[in-house]
Amino acid sequence: MHGPAQAGWLLVALCAATGSYCLLRMRSRVEAQRRTAGSEALMGFGMALMALPAAVLAPPRWAWLAYAAVFGAAALRALWAARSDRHHLHHLVGACAMVYMAVAMAATPAAHAGHGGGGGGAPLLTGFLLLYFAGYVLVSGARLLPVSTVAAADGGGGRGVAVMGWADRTELAMVCRLSMGIAMIAMLLTL
């Protein structure tokens, strides 16, 4: 009853909203959070563009190659940043997954019309990425359960509560990561 176009639009909305919040997180006072939010905003908006239904936008082959180049550069940046922060390893896997999907779409652009492959079975790399993101979603969801929304006490004395801006809400950042993980699973399933 509900075709792939409707699911595609929901995926676009989810990824665009996530990317928008990540842009807001770039206003954080903590430099490491700003860098991470920038990488996640790129991923969110890139996923939103890639998920657009083919009836609206059927990119030519060169556009898929441009996606691969942009996310290849993001993968190199994540690899460099992973030297000091292991969370960037997840960004590396995500960027590599985007490169993989873009190259697959460049190789078979007709598959984008239905957001699904030709039914030839899932290659080993697709299966690995699905397992990785499924595990990531489960771990991220479990981490959300005990998160407290109260900021640390100011001055270490426990006298007051520091006011947190939208850019510093750790639970919202975790929700963004969780939603992008779920969106990545949905995109990989249609590959």
Rank of each mutant, 00 (worst) to 15 (best):
H87Q: 14
A7Y: 07
P53F: 09
G160F: 13
T126C: 12
V99A: 11
C22V: 00
M174N: 02
L145P: 01
A111R: 07
V93N: 04
V163R: 15
T108V: 14
R177T: 04
P53A: 11
L65N: 06
A73T: 14
A153I: 02
V56C: 10
A122G: 01
G46N: 01
G72L: 11
V150M: 12
S84E: 15
T36G: 13
M180D: 00
A7G: 14
A113C: 06
E171F: 05
M43V: 05
A16C: 05
A63E: 02
L188E: 08
C22P: 00
H115Q: 15
Y132D: 03
L130P: 01
M98H: 03
P60S: 04
H91S: 12
A68P: 08
L124E: 12
G135W: 10
G44E: 06
G114Y: 04
G121H: 06
V163I: 08
M184K: 05
W62C: 09
L49C: 12
G119D: 14
S84P: 06
L14F: 00
L145C: 03
R61W: 01
A51M: 06
W64S: 04
A110H: 12
Y100A: 14
R27N: 05
L89I: 09
L172P: 04
A102E: 10
P60F: 03
A58E: 05
L89Q: 04
Y100I: 10
V150G: 02
S148F: 02
M47Y: 02
P53C: 14
L92E: 12
P146H: 10
L178S: 02
L125H: 07
R61N: 06
A142G: 09
L191K: 11
V103A: 10
A5H: 13
L188K: 05
W166N: 03
T18M: 06
L76M: 11
G114S: 13
A55I: 11
A58T: 07
A32E: 13
A97P: 03
G155E: 05
R143V: 00
G135D: 02
A104Y: 03
L144F: 04
L188V: 06
